[in-house]
Each structure stands twice: as C-alpha cells, then as structure tokens.
Simulated assay, not measured.
Amino acid sequence: MTSLHTNPLFARLADSERILVAGAGGGFDIYSGLPVALSLLHQGKEVYLANLSFSALAGLPADDWAADDLAVVTPDSAPHQSYFPERTLAQWLRRHGYPPTVYAFPQTGVRPLRAAYQALTELHGIDAVVLVDGGTDILLRGDEAGLGTPEEDLTSVAALAALDGVPNRVVVSVGFGVDAYHGVNHVQVLENIAALERDGAYLGAFSIPRATREGALYLDAVAHAQHHTPEHPSIVNGSIAAAVRGSFGDVRFTERTRGSELFVNPLMSLCFAFDLPGLAARCLYLDRIEDTHLMRQVHSRIAEFRESMVTRPPRTFPH
C-alpha cells in the first residue's frame, strides 16, 4: 500500500531497472507514452521504446531487424518514407540527447507479437513493461455500446498478458475522450475503471502539467512530429498536447479534423494506470484472439464475438 503523496504507477516501477515503454495501438501511440518514459529516464532507469507500427516496415533491410517481427528504427531508417512515426521520434530523441532507437512491431496477430515482445525483453533483460494507449478503447471489455478501434490495442494486451517472464506489466491510458469520434461511450469507460478499482487493478491517475520538464518535452515532441508529418499528424496526440497547453473546446491543429467538432479538455491530459494482467482478465474476448497470427484474424474474431454479444446500452453524463 502506498501513501497518498506517492504516485502508484511510479511506486510500482521503483524497483524496476530496465523498462520497456510500448505504444499499443499503432501510429503515434508511443508518443503518448513519452511523458512516462522521460520521467523514468530522468529517474536514472534504463528505458527502451517500442511501438506497434503502421509504417512500411517490410521495406527495411535485413540488418534493421533484431528478430522476427522486431525492427530496429533509428533516425536514419528509411529516409524515403514520409510517414514513419518511429523514425521521427528517433530523430527527436537524438536531437535532445536521448538514446535514439525505437523498436517497431509490424501488424500481426497475438502469437507473432508475443514472440517479438519475448525477443525484445530477452535482448535487454526487461523487468517491466508499460503499455500505452493514446485513447481509452484499451479499457473496453467487449460488451460496451461501441469498442472504438480495439484490434491493435487488445492484440498488444493479449501478447503481454501471457509474458509471465516480465514480472511488472502495466497499462497507461491517456487521452480520455478522444475515442468518442469512434463511438466509445466514456461513461462506460468510467464504469470499467470503477470495476478495475474494485478488482485492485486500478493504479490511479495523474496529469501531465506543461510546467514539468516531461510535459514541456512532450509538447516539443508532438510539435516536432506535426512539422515532420504535415500530411498525417496525430489527432490523438495533437488533442492531448492541446489539453496540456490548457486549450479547451473545438481546437484546430490539423486539416484532418475539418468537418468534425473536437472537445479538448483537461481530462485528456490525465494518465490512467492499470495492472495489465488485471485489465486483461476483464476482457471478454481475449481468449478468442489468443491463437491468431494475422491482424485480419483479430478483426474477424472480434466481429464474430460482437455478433453474439448483447451490449450494454450507452449512457450520457448526468452533469
């Protein structure tokens, strides 16, 4: 049991020495984990970064692969690719004097992803994993009114849930509200968090203040990524960064959101932390995707599950 003045997530990681911070859902998800990763680095931990990738990893040369389905991305990787969040992050890391390597997993099913995680954890002797989702659909168990885009997130959860050789595995969700566009009902997200609290799997929440070193660096990293990926900037991290800056309401930072109304607010800058095995235990369909090898199998298994499920009706905030 921790004291109120102690952050439960960092208390949980206090005895860990080599920590992997990984983006769960592809794209720029690893950026959502930067504040936590940087804080751990500043505490003197060895921190490694990885991301489930939407980049064209298949074109990387053989020397850029540490193992099957485990690419090593550096600032100089695939310079011809305009969209490569992992490389863009590696360039930002080098610019600020941090280790400039980001590992990348191609989109696969649970079995290959777990093997890649196993290889990475063995390569560096990882004793803790922080799996980060930019959004909240990683917290959905399967019977909600809408699941958002859970395929990559829950593939990552399933891959790590059985990685018992890593004693400390946690999930961090940041960007509360950004998944409303994809049909997530956030009252049900709060209901799930309450259930995880009852299960003892909720590790509390904390904000990313812009006045902190990590908050300022996160804002700089997001701005750097937006500048270097102007045609496809991250809406999720753009929203989180806007919230960290204190913006509110329908904030415009990219043409990609034209025609939709955003609701940037302070809740988007909160990091909600959870015990990963505890979160995995509440997912109603994790067993159905356990033996998948391809991401399209994950898609079809979840769709089949949803066809047989009576979902909880959506609810609105009462205040």
Rank of each mutant, 00 (worst) to 15 (best):
L4W: 08
H5K: 12
T6M: 10
T6N: 05
T6A: 09
L9R: 01
R18D: 08
I19E: 03
L20G: 08
V21P: 04
A22E: 13
G23L: 08
Y31C: 06
Y31Q: 06
Y31T: 13
S32C: 14
L38Q: 06
S39I: 07
L40C: 07
H42V: 02
Q43K: 14
K45A: 08
V47K: 03
G59W: 12
P61H: 10
A62P: 05
W65F: 11
A66M: 12
V72D: 04
P79R: 13
T88M: 13
L93I: 06
H96K: 08
H96E: 15
P99E: 08
T108W: 01
P112L: 11
R114A: 09
Y117I: 07
Y117H: 15
L120Y: 14
T121I: 10
T121E: 12
L123T: 11
L123M: 13
A128W: 05
V129I: 15
V130D: 01
L131K: 04
V132P: 05
G135A: 03
T136W: 00
D137I: 00
R141I: 11
D143H: 15
A145D: 03
E151T: 09
E151N: 14
D153I: 06
S156G: 13
L163A: 10
D164G: 15
N168I: 15
G175W: 00
H182F: 11
L190V: 08
A205L: 11
I208M: 03
I208F: 01
P209K: 04
E214F: 08
L217Q: 13
L217M: 14
V222F: 01
H224M: 05
H224W: 14
A225K: 01
I235W: 00
I240T: 01
V244Y: 00
R245E: 15
G249L: 00
D250I: 03
D250M: 05
F253T: 04
R256Y: 03
S269R: 15
S269G: 14
F272S: 02
D275I: 09
G278N: 06
L279I: 11
A281M: 09
Y285I: 04
R288N: 06
I289D: 01
E290Y: 07
V298C: 01
S308G: 11
V310W: 12
T311Y: 07
P313V: 09
R315T: 11
